[in-house]
Amino acid sequence: MNGELILFFVLAIVAISAALGMLFSRNAVYSALFLILNFATVAVFFLLLGAPFIAMAQVTVYAGAIMVLFLFVIMLLGAEQIQHQARRGWQRPLAMLLTLVLLAESAYLIFTRSDVLTVLQPAAADYGSPQSIGMLLFSEYLLPFEVTSILLLAAMVGAIVLVKEDKKSGGQK
């Protein structure tokens, strides 16, 4: 068992634990923090898989921007917790059952189709480097890249419009 495999299992345990922690924390702030931990471990996986650019993007965008936004909203709304209510009785067990089924399916797939899944080989030197990603983005995927910018702009405008106080309705209130 080499070091890389050990690292993988350790990280995997951390990632799954973080996910479970997010899932079952009573407090939304803890959930957010667990999720950040999860994202960080996933970023390390990206590094292991030869995707340093994506790993950086993961850390900055997800762990940095997005999760900060989450925390910000949680704290802004003061909605860390929700008072206990009568649960819909069959929702939770059914969800768990379905999740187990999904996992079983995945396991079946992994064990029956492991022949088509290759073992990862050491990658080329510049594989996944920011330079090569950048070359790809600005050549082959130029149009989707530009469309993404418009998407982001639209999301920004949308968010502002949604959150902005409606002067008229506010005045009426």
């Binding site: 890389e4 996910a19 996933v42 898989l49 768990m96 996992l103 396991a107 073992v119 990862l120």
Partner: peptide, 22 residues
């Protein structure tokens, strides 16, 4: 080296946990 199936399994677990959370 690590087989892809390990990543697949990890990914499946994480996805299932996400779905369960939803």
């Amino acid at each position: 080296m690590i087989p892809v199936s390990y990543y697949f399994a990890l990914s499946a677990i994480l996805f299932s946990l996400g779905a369960l959370g939803v």
